[in-house]
Amino acid sequence: MSNALRLSEKWFRRGLWLVAFLFAWFLTGLGSTIVGDLPQVEQQRSLEDFMDASRTAALRQTLKSTEQAAEDAQAALEQAQLKLQTARADNRAARETFDNWLATRRATQRPEQDDELLQRTRELDGLRQAERDALAAVQRQQQAALDASQASQRAQAELGRLQDAAREAYRSAQRAQELRVFGYRLALTLPLLVVAGWLFKKHRQGASWPFVWGFIFFALFAFFVELVPYLPSYGGYVRYIVGIVLTVIGGRYAIQALQRYLERQKQAEAQPDNQRRKELDYDLAQARLAKNVCPGCERAVDLKDGKTDFCPHCGLCLFDRCGHCSTRKSAFARYCFACGTAAVPAGRAEDAPAQTAT
């Protein structure tokens, strides 16, 4: 078809296609923004919304208090362990000193040192008692840390049971919410697709065709790109069922369209040659001839041999003779390329011999 267009007309058409794509791009941006904001019409719910509020609050408070108690017990345990280490070191050092002193006393056998022996023994007993007290403090803090940890585990387990009990209701509500949001998107995009189909059928070749095609591109993108990724899965059943339904609908439409097309072709091929050429669009006929295709039946024809004047499939006249110079030319040409004489209209072809003779 482009071979039959004027040079300026080609550039105008390219510019109009650019307008169509720009129009579609801006519409797509607006549509994407709207579709992306649609989930905001629904309140986002969490798992905690389906749990016992009072029990959950009490458990979370218990967890908080037990975690704090565990932290305090751990800090106190570290201090107690440090004190225990100090007491053990002091006791060990005093024991070594006492052993050395006791060995010296045995060597000298001095009775006046008995009081000092008793005093040193009492000091060692005090150090041993301090060590035992430090060890008891460590054990108490270990017990406190263990109690806090077990209380935290019990609260966490109880909270987990509450979450498990609420999870199914939460998932059901989430699926229902996703379905509602998908319904909003479908209610927005499906009418656009319907309008796009109507525009394609009625106005795709009208004066405003760039805007029509731009809207069609936008509607297709909104439906198949903006909508389909949000299609609920439910294990894949919904997607496959929707795919089957769309395939059946599209297939039936394609089959019916093909049958209607073949029926129109049969009716057109049954008409007289002059009537068929008169009803064919000029630009469409030129485009098909450029592709070695019959403009009437759309079957391949060898047009380069210079001898084929009629379609061997439907009998449509493809080449004739100029009434002025008898040059072989395309039967769809409006003027003779050899002498420039206007071609005889298809409806008046039967008058051509009389005009020529005159």
Rank of each mutant, 00 (worst) to 15 (best):
152 S>R: 10
210 P>D: 07
255 I>M: 11
228 V>A: 05
138 V>P: 00
67 E>R: 10
290 A>D: 13
87 A>N: 05
222 A>M: 08
135 L>A: 15
8 S>F: 11
289 L>A: 00
97 T>C: 03
113 Q>R: 12
303 L>Y: 09
154 R>I: 10
354 A>C: 08
344 V>F: 10
238 V>E: 01
110 R>G: 07
2 S>E: 15
29 G>D: 06
12 F>T: 14
212 V>K: 03
268 A>W: 04
178 E>P: 00
3 N>K: 15
87 A>T: 10
283 D>H: 11
235 G>Q: 06
265 Q>D: 09
188 L>G: 02
340 G>I: 13
304 K>H: 13
236 G>C: 05
69 A>C: 05
125 D>V: 10
48 E>S: 09
23 F>Q: 00
52 D>N: 11
154 R>K: 15
165 A>Y: 06
102 L>H: 07
149 S>N: 12
215 F>K: 00
59 L>Y: 02
44 Q>G: 04
122 R>S: 07
136 A>H: 07
79 Q>T: 15
140 R>P: 01
17 W>C: 00
281 D>Y: 02
280 L>Y: 03
356 T>N: 10
308 T>I: 02
146 L>P: 00
139 Q>W: 00
313 H>G: 02
164 D>M: 09
41 V>E: 08
292 N>A: 12
227 L>V: 02
50 F>H: 00
120 R>Y: 06
312 P>L: 13
265 Q>Y: 06
